[in-house]
Nucleic acid binder design. Structure first.
Length: 255
DNA sequence: ACCCAGGCCATCT
DNA sequence: AGATGGCCTGGG
């Protein structure tokens, strides 16, 4: 068991924020948190967290997963106080963090996310992973699945994208993406069936931690048109724009 | 009933 | 290059 204080970390906010779809809320407000084929249970009381794992595992895996080396308070502090909307958004979601998730897991889950909603994505991911005994299906396992079997899970037309991604990443190791720049990774991801500009940006932000990736979905598009008609000031927020996007997305989602 | 949800792709002009 | 419609499914 590891007990630790963490600032700017609210498990419920992260759970709701639509960046991870395999977390499960437990009784007493704890969470079961899968990451690749690892898993931990965490309980939060204010700023104090209990991880039911060894100190060694915490340092090897979970400290990095929760991006504990990044000061989110400093990012919030960068927000222009004259920007009322953004100031309110970061205040509202002050417990959000961008998790450092496994890129292949993120590819699968964000392929399923398109034209969908959070409860349905969770169900699709759970049902898909159940086919491989709760583990993350490997590219070759996905490649070998039939479109019919996948459609039976209710993933609809995304079934062929999953198979296509399995094929694509059987030849092309997902881990290679970690060595690339944001632009390179985005360009490469777009070559995979079912990955367009928006999903590629989500994978860059949530799977590769390229914090300048700025995914524009229907919510963000709406926010930009009403609050930033001239576009979001990406240059001003270089190095954290994607993180600010997450605060705006969450604020809009909960309103 | 109808529309939309964290879009992508094929098929046009 | 840019615009349009189709696509699976579930919930409001």
């Amino acid at each position: 068991m590891v007990t630790i204080d963490i600032k700017n970390c609210n498990l419920t906010q992260i759970y709701e924020s639509g960046q991870c779809f395999r977390w499960e809320m437990l009784a007493q407000g704890g969470f079961r948190i899968p990451h690749g084929n690892h898993e931990v249970q965490v309980i939060q009381k204010d700023h104090t967290f209990q991880f039911n794992c060894s100190q060694q595992e915490f340092e090897d895996i979970w400290s990095d997963y929760f991006d504990l080396s990044t000061d989110y308070g400093a990012i919030i502090g960068r927000v222009d106080s004259k920007d009322r909307y953004l100031t309110e958004a970061v205040r509202y979601g002050e417990g959000l963090r961008i998790l450092r998730q496994d890129v292949w897991e993120i590819i699968i889950t964000f392929l399923l996310s398109q034209n969908s909603n959070i409860p349905r994505i969770r169900k699709n991911v759970r049902d898909l992973f159940a086919l491989t005994d709760g583990r993350v299906p490997t590219p070759s396992q996905l490649k070998a699945m039939s479109e019919e079997d996948l459609r039976a899970l209710g993933v609809g037309y995304r079934a062929k994208y999953l198979i296509g991604a399995g094929k694509f990443f059987s030849d092309y190791q997902p881990e290679q993406l970690y060595t690339m720049s944001y632009e390179q990774a985005h360009q490469t991801l777009m070559k995979c069936p079912g990955i367009g500009p928006k999903v590629a940006d989500c994978i860059c932000l949530f799977g590769l931690h390229h914090v300048d990736a700025f995914p524009i979905d229907t919510h963000i598009r709406q926010i930009l048109s009403s609050h930033y008609p001239k576009g979001f000031p990406l240059e001003q927020y270089r190095g954290c724009a994607g993180i600010l996007q997450q605060y705006m997305f969450y604020y809009d989602l909960k309103k």
